[in-house]
Amino acid sequence: MALSKVRTNLGVVLVVAVVIATLASCSSDKAKQAGHPSYVTSGQFTTAHPNMSDTLKDYFDVYPTHVQQPIAFTHKMHLEHGMQCTDCHKGVAEGPDATIPNVQLCMTCHQVIATDKPEIKKVAAYQKEGEEIPWRRVNWFYQSAHVKFYHSPHIRAGIDCAACHGDMRQETTAVRKAGLDMGFCLNCHKKYKAPTDCMTCHY
C-alpha cells in the first residue's frame, strides 16, 4: 500500500518534470535544426530513453491496444477463406520481422476479387496513387527497450502465432493481445527452456 503511494507521488513529480522538460526539449530540437551542431545535449531526467514520449509511455506501460487502421481489414474473413498467415506475412519464417504486406500484394488478388467492396476500392485507390497503405503498427517495442526480437526462431520452435497475437480467426484488424513485456517473454522462455540470458534479446 505504502509502496504504491510512493509510486503515485513519484508519478506526479515525474509528470510535472516531464511536461516542463518536453517543452524545453521541443525548443532545443528547433535550435538543432537551425544551427549545425552534430549532437544535442538532452535535458532529460532519465537515461535509457530517446525521447520524452517513450520515457513516459514506457514508465506507465502504455501501448495502444486498438489501433485505428486506414482500411477495415478483416483477418477473420481472409483466414476463413483458407489463407495462411504466411501468405501475407512472408518474412515470418525467414527473418526478424513478420512483414506487413505491401499494397501490390493485396492487389494481386483484389484485382479480381471483391473489387466492388468500398474497402477494396480504397486499397485500389492507394495503388493507383502509387502510395503504400499507411498501416499503423500494433505490436512493437519502444526503442528504449533495446529488444531485438526475431520471429524466425520462434516459428521454427513451433510456437503458435496465437501465443502472442491471439486467435486471429476471431479478429478484424489486429489487436495487441499480449502485454509483450519482459515477464510475458520470460514465462514462455522458462517454460520451453529457451535461453534467458539478457544477451538473447537485449543488444
Binding site: 511536461v19 518536453t22 514520449s53 513516459l56 505491401n102 502509387g130 502510395e131
Partner: peptide
Amino acid sequence: KISAVGSTTAALDACGKPEHHLIRFI
C-alpha cells in the same frame, strides 16, 4: 496516467516528427 500521457504526447506531436506524416510510396 491518462492525463499525463495525453498532454505530453500532444506536446511531442506538435514538436514534430515529420516522417510520421509523410506519404509512403509503393
